[in-house]
Each structure stands twice: as C-alpha cells, then as structure tokens.
Amino acid sequence: MSEQVITLEKVNKWYDDFHVLKDIDLVVNKGQKIVICGPSGSGKSTMIRCINRLEAHQEGKIFVHGTELTGDLKNIDTIRREVGMVFQQFNLFPHLSVLDNISLAPIWVKKMPKKEAEEVAMTYLEKVKIPEQALKFPGQLSGGQQQRVAIARSLAMNPKIMLFDEPTSALDPEMIKEVLDVMIQLAEEGMTMLVVTHEMGFAKTVADQMIFMDEGNIVEQASPSEFFNNPKNDRTKLFLSQILNH
C-alpha cells in the first residue's frame, strides 16, 4: 500500500484579484515522480512553491507527511527540512564557497558539527560528480555545475521529497543533460519528486504521473503513455503539439 506524502485539497490562491490556483486537488505517494507542465502563468510554479510555503495559499488544505501547512511557523520549519527545492536560477549563495553552500543548512538547521557537515557535503558533491569544485565560488562555475551544486545542497538536508522548479530553463542547451542525468539518477534511487519542466524527454523516462496545468487548473492528470499518446483535453493537445513539434 502506497503512503501519501503530499495531499492538496481544494487549494485556492489569489495574487490580489488574480486567481492563480483554482480548487487544486493532488495526491502524491511516496516514491512517485510527477512531472508538471503547462504554459507560463498557469500556476505550476506557484503550486509547488505552496508545498514548502514559499507562497501561502488562502483556501483549502495542504498536508505534507500528515502535517498541515498553516501559518504555524514551527510546522513550516519542520516541513521545509523534509522538502528540498531546486530553483530555475540556482540561487546559490555567491559569498560562500561550494562546500559552505552545501554544509550551511546541515550546520545551522541540523546542528551538525562542521567537520561532519563538510563530509556530508563532499558525499553529495561526488554524487553530482563535481567534488573537485568544492573550494570554488559559485561565480566560477558553469550554469550546469551551479545547478548540480544546488541539487547537492538540497540533498544534504536529506529530504524526503524534492521539488524542482524549471531546473533546466536557465541553462545553455549543452548543459541540460548533465543536470537531467543527476535528476534521473535521483529518481532511480526512489526519491519522491515533483518536477516543473518542459523537458518532455525527461518526463517520458522518469515520470509515473503527468500533470498539465492551465489558468490555475489541473486540466489533465495521466500516466505518461496515456498523456503523450492519447491526451483527452484539447488544451493539452494544443500544448503538446506546440512543445513537441518545435
């Protein structure tokens, strides 16, 4: 029996008058890999940013590991420790070395001794295949390397769930693969993943659920084979034809 790790019930969110998320229902089971796509402004980033409360929802309920996300700061901190996030713009800390970027949260949030945290950091740098960059600063790395450091930084907190917000959109084409390879490896190890991306090749390889969002709604949710071969909704069809035939 699969275990529900994320549950969204009738979630609504507004930016002032703009209704970004409309009655979103979503269940994510342990170990599931869900790829979310849709046109820009459809609410897909906002949805995953609600899951670690970088954005607050106004109506409905969000549970992560059984803990409900409310304004309660303690709950938010607990959930953030279990949910890692990778951003489009990497968001590495430019004033810290790669090693310090990764060991920062283990030291300050988990109160890990510095030496141990650095060992953890090195383990994950090896996992993303750039241990030799440990002492450099983010500005000295290529985009692909920076994003891999960002993934290692999230993993160092040993999260149960990983959220990816368009992780390859800011990368030059030749660097996309090195980041996707790391993500595929992570998926194979059984990580629960929610990925906002337009990399449909990646989606076909990794996803066990596809979600298509438009104008704040989940328009279609299906298995990848169903989704790509036999989309039900017209908007999905249009979107897929645009994205696959360019």
């Binding site: 670690n52 970088l54 901190d77 953030r80 420790r81 949910v83 890692g84 996030m85 951003f87 713009q89 968001n91 590495l92 800390f93 430019p94 004033h95 920062l104 949260a105 300050w108 949030v109 960002a150 930084r153 999230s154 907190m157």
Partner: peptide
C-alpha cells in the same frame, strides 16, 4: 539581494534570523 537568495535559505529550513545573518547581511 535577489529574492531567490532568501527563498533558497528559507526552503532549506533556515529561520528568518539565520538566513538574515548568514545569507542576506553578509552580501
């Protein structure tokens, strides 16, 4: 300081004061 810096720090579980002291103020 770009908003993403604070978001990255907060998303790893750093508190407001920790992210202010370690990430925002030094920059």
């Amino acid at each position: 300081i770009p908003r993403g810096q604070i978001e990255a720090a907060r998303s790893m579980g750093l508190t407001y004061w920790q992210s202010t002291r370690k990430i925002v103020l030094p920059q």
